[in-house]
């Protein structure tokens, strides 16, 4: 059909926003609040959604995904919490050191890759560190619906426990906090045992924690479909390499600290994307030819596709070798 052909833009719909608050929570984490620049209401969303923030870092465009952590029913503002990563690629540092109240920024419409299973009789949340953010929105949503939930939140120290006081004050019987420096650990096996039929578990945190929850749940006989996780991968740095873009008829150098997707975009070639974290599948790209080895890091392609070299997810994956040609 071609009723009104329009070219699809890469990425989700954009919303121009103004930074309305910058609230340092502790040594590592700062909350940023946004209002819509046009004064309209934000779209509501479901807990677990993220937004991609566009940062203009002295001419270099950075696009980082962050979970929306504000109450989804409050359409007057959006909030994200950003953990500073001094060894990262610079997006979180930019947010911490450069973004001020009153700044104009652009964020995307909510994108949902980590949703509540609304059939669940009970929602069991496991958070590690900054992984608390999607649960802040999920909890607000479930509270409004009289949902049955319980949070187990692991943090390094009391000083680094973002939102611990607020959560404990509001929900003293539902929130359980564990401090690494006091040798406290989530009693996962006990918790997974004895949950009512129809309970669903959700985990957001470091990769090790996600794997631990999945493996422990599986060993305890939980169906995999009732264990949900979200892990955003940041693109890892790697050796520079060269890529040939066949459709665009150009050759691009991928630098040590940029992703293949960023290099393609820098060359002015429009490529689809949504999450920029290896999870959503939007940037899937066909490989035309290659001589070398892929460093696949995504959660999207299956093992067979990783092995046969037919596709690559340029948001997080890289290449080492003599030559790489992509259908882009």
């Amino acid at each position: 059909m071609s009723a009104a052909p329009q070219k699809a833009k890469p990425g989700a719909e954009q919303i121009p926003v103004t930074v309305s608050a910058v609230v340092p929570l502790n040594e590592l984490v700062t909350r940023f609040e946004f209002k819509r620049t046009d004064g309209q209401a934000f779209p509501t969303f479901s807990g677990g959604a993220h937004t991609v923030v566009t940062m203009n870092d002295d001419g270099r465009t950075r696009l980082n995904p962050y979970s929306l952590m504000s109450d989804p029913s409050d359409t007057s503002m959006y909030a994200i919490s950003v953990r500073r990563d001094d060894n990262g690629r610079g997006g979180s540092l930019f947010m911490h050191t450069r973004v001020k109240v009153g700044d104009q920024m652009t964020i995307t419409y909510p994108v949902h890759l980590f949703s509540l299973d609304l059939r669940a009789r009970k929602h069991l949340f496991f958070a590690g560190g900054i992984g608390i953010t999607p649960f802040m929105a999920m909890i607000a949503q479930l509270e409004r619906m009289n949902g049955n939930w319980e949070l187990h939140y692991s943090v390094r120290t009391e000083a680094l426990g973002s939102y611990v006081d607020e959560l404990r004050y509001k929900f003293p019987n539902k929130v359980h906090v564990y401090y690494d420096d006091q040798n406290q650990a989530i009693p996962l096996e006990d918790l997974l045992d004895g949950q009512p039929l129809g309970a669903n578990a959700y985990v957001c945190g470091p990769k090790g924690m996600i794997d631990w929850v999945h493996a422990t749940a599986e060993a305890a006989g939980w169906p995999d479909a009732q264990v949900h996780s979200e892990e955003f991968l940041a693109p890892a740095p790697g050796k520079p390499f060269e890529v040939r873009l066949c459709k665009s008829d150009m050759t691009v150098q991928v630098g040590e600290n940029e992703s293949l997707l960023e290099a393609i975009e820098r060359a002015g070639v429009e490529a689809p994307f949504l999450c920029r974290g290896g999870a959503c599948g939007q940037c899937e790209t066909d490989v035309v030819a290659y001589d070398g080895d892929f460093i696949h890091r995504d959660h999207w392609l299956d093992e067979e596709q990783h092995a046969d070299g037919s596709k690559i997810m340029p948001c997080v994956s890289r290449f080492v070798g003599k030559s790489l040609e992509l259908d882009r």
Partner: peptide, 12 residues
């Protein structure tokens, strides 16, 4: 699965 909020689609 990838249809996003604010970006509806259609077909005949």
């Amino acid at each position: 699965l990838n249809i996003q909020q604010g970006a509806p689609a259609r077909r005949l």
